[in-house]
Simulated scan of single mutants.
Amino acid sequence: MTTIPIQPGERIDQLFSTDVKIIQNRDVFSYSVDSVLLSRFPKLPSRGLIVDLCSGNGAVGLFASSQTQAQIILVELQERLAEMAERSIRLNNLTDQVSVINDDLKNLTQHIKPSQVDLIVCNPPYFKATETSKKNLSEHYLLARHEITTNLDEICKVCQQALKSNGRLALVHRPDRLLEIIDTLKQYKLAPKRIQFIYPKAGKEANMLLIEAIKDGSLEGMRILPPLIVHQDNGDYTDEIRAIYYGH
């Protein structure tokens, strides 16, 4: 493992089902279960090009790197988070496979040719910018969680531009925005094909969803996958989640 400088407040975490290590900083950005689940939700192309939009410290794309030989591009607006991701790439000796674009995602096709991407994964801001109840966050978390610098419409527009025909988009988002998500996907010719609801515990309401869409795909044949429950009643991970985090 390459020696990489670690800044004050940072730590190195590992998803133990892989060898990938991620540089984290609780005050700046740390990945959580949504990033882990998103990295395992779509079937990854064995080769080609994957883009991770709203990549934060690069967790989704870096975790995916252990499952494919495809080139992976992380796209992150915040310079501090992009720099953390770049160091994590070097930490894992992945510079030949993974790279970072530190720019607004709407400029993606200035960096890569349109209609060239096989798969886009995106863990976007969940909350509309008008929702003010939880804005007592650091600037980094504020931008990561609220639609201040980007929104669902802009993300889908960029995906339509960047994806190949029959290329796929995989999103993690909030169930209360499902109808808006589906309407926006369809507006940009992204046909929803697979949805999975995530539940914190059995008997609780879903608090996340995973959705996959295909560019220029048929609007018929959408599948609702079995529910995924994160925690047992005692707070431990369920067997499914434990296998994702630690391997079988």
Score class of each variant (00 low, 15 high):
residue 35 S to H: 07
residue 36 V to A: 15
residue 36 V to T: 06
residue 37 L to I: 11
residue 37 L to Y: 11
residue 38 L to M: 14
residue 39 S to W: 05
residue 40 R to M: 07
residue 43 K to W: 00
residue 44 L to N: 06
residue 44 L to A: 13
residue 46 S to P: 08
residue 49 L to F: 03
residue 54 C to T: 12
residue 54 C to M: 06
residue 54 C to Y: 04
residue 56 G to W: 08
residue 57 N to L: 09
residue 58 G to P: 13
residue 59 A to P: 11
residue 60 V to Q: 07
residue 60 V to T: 12
residue 61 G to P: 00
residue 68 T to V: 03
residue 68 T to C: 03
residue 68 T to W: 03
residue 69 Q to L: 06
residue 71 Q to N: 12
residue 71 Q to R: 12
residue 73 I to D: 01
residue 73 I to M: 04
residue 74 L to N: 08
residue 76 E to V: 02
residue 76 E to L: 04
residue 77 L to V: 09
residue 77 L to I: 11
residue 79 E to V: 06
residue 83 E to P: 00
residue 90 R to I: 02
residue 90 R to F: 11
residue 90 R to V: 06
residue 92 N to L: 10
residue 94 L to K: 13
residue 97 Q to N: 09
residue 97 Q to Y: 04
residue 97 Q to F: 07
residue 98 V to L: 07
residue 98 V to P: 11
residue 99 S to T: 12
residue 101 I to F: 14
residue 101 I to H: 06
residue 103 D to A: 15
residue 105 L to G: 10
residue 107 N to E: 13
residue 108 L to Q: 08
residue 108 L to I: 11
residue 108 L to G: 09
residue 109 T to K: 07
residue 110 Q to S: 15
residue 114 P to H: 03
residue 116 Q to E: 14
residue 117 V to S: 14
residue 117 V to F: 12
residue 119 L to A: 04
residue 120 I to P: 12
residue 120 I to M: 09
residue 121 V to P: 00
residue 121 V to F: 01
residue 122 C to S: 14
residue 123 N to L: 10
residue 123 N to V: 05
residue 126 Y to D: 00
residue 127 F to C: 00
residue 128 K to G: 15
residue 129 A to I: 04
residue 131 E to K: 02
residue 134 K to P: 02
residue 135 K to G: 08
residue 136 N to L: 11
residue 138 S to D: 05
residue 139 E to Y: 10
residue 140 H to N: 07
residue 141 Y to V: 12
residue 141 Y to D: 15
residue 142 L to M: 08
residue 144 A to P: 04
residue 145 R to P: 01
residue 146 H to P: 02
residue 148 I to K: 03
residue 149 T to A: 15
residue 154 E to S: 08
residue 155 I to C: 10
residue 156 C to A: 05
residue 158 V to C: 12
residue 160 Q to C: 06
residue 160 Q to I: 09
residue 160 Q to A: 06
residue 162 A to C: 03
residue 164 K to N: 03
residue 165 S to W: 02
residue 167 G to I: 09
residue 169 L to R: 05
residue 169 L to D: 03
residue 170 A to D: 14
residue 172 V to N: 01
residue 176 D to K: 11
residue 177 R to V: 02
residue 178 L to M: 07
residue 179 L to G: 10
